[in-house]
Design a protein around this nucleic acid. Structure first.
Lengths: 109, 109
DNA sequence: TTGCTACTTGGCTAAATAGCCAAACAGCAA
DNA sequence: TTGCTGTTTGGCTATTTAGCCAAGTAGCAA
C-alpha cells in the first residue's frame, strides 16, 4: 500500500474541509447530481426538497471547500464540479461501507 | 465519466456519515497515521495532542462510520483501517484541492 | 487484595451547524 | 420605471459537536 506522507496542519485542515463539505446528505446528493452535469440552484432545490436559502448556503459550503464552482448565466446560477476527481471518491466510499470487515484489501477498485 | 446511480436516502446518509467522520483535522490525522499500520490510543493521543478522552471519542466516531476497527490486546486498544480503500480517497482529494480551476479532468489519477 | 496503566463514559460549556422566514439583490422584460 | 424570477444574505432558534475534567472500567502484576 502506498505510504502516506504526513500532512501539514494546513493541509490537514483543508482536506478535512473537503470531507466535511461532503459530510451532509443534502450536500452529497447535490454533488452527485452535479456530477452528471451542471445544475442551477432551482433544480437542486427541487431535487433535495429544502428551502432554497438552505440550498444556497449548502452550495456555498461546497464552493468554499473547492468541490464546486458556479457560473451565472442570465438570472440563473449554475453549479458544477470543480474537478471530476470527486466522483472517484464515491466508488471507493461504497467499498468502505460494504467491506465485509477486515483485510478485504484486494477488492478495492 | 462514469455515471452515478442515484443513491437511496439511507445510502446518502451512511456515505455522508463516512465523509463527516473524515471531516475533522484530528480524525483525518489519525486515519492517516493508522493507514501506515495499527496504532493504540496512547500513540494517537501523543500524535494529535488532545486529551485522551477527546481522542477516544473521535475514534468512536470513526468506528461508527465504518472507517476504523479496533482490537483490544492486553490493556491496550489498537485501531486500524477497516479497509485500505480509504487511502485512495486521500490521493484523489489532493487533486481536488490542487486542481487549477476547471476541467483539469485528465489529470485525475 | 491493591495498584498501576490504558481506555471509555458522563457531564458540562462554548462554539459551530442546519433549518426556516424575510429581506435584499441581480437580470431580464415590459 | 415597475414587476417578475432566481439567488443570496441576515437573523433567529434548535440541535449538534468539540473539548476538557472527573469518574468509571478492564487487564495485568505484585
Amino acid at each position: 500500500m502506498k505510504r502516506l506522507s504526513p500532512l501539514s496542519l494546513a493541509d490537514l485542515r483543508s482536506q478535512a474541509q473537503v470531507f466535511k463539505a461532503l459530510g451532509h446528505p443534502a450536500r452529497l446528493q447535490m454533488v452527485q447530481a452535479v456530477a452528471d452535469g451542471e445544475q442551477c440552484v432551482c433544480e437542486l432545490t427541487e431535487l433535495v426538497g429544502l428551502d432554497m436559502s438552505t440550498i444556497s448556503k449548502h452550495l456555498s459550503v461546497l464552493t468554499a471547500a473547492g468541490v464546486l464552482v458556479s457560473e451565472k448565466r442570465a438570472n440563473k446560477v449554475f453549479y458544477r464540479l470543480r474537478t471530476p476527481c470527486v466522483t472517484k471518491v464515491f466508488s471507493c466510499l461504497h467499498d468502505v461501507q460494504s467491506a465485509p470487515d477486515a483485510e478485504s484489501s484486494a477488492r478495492c477498485r
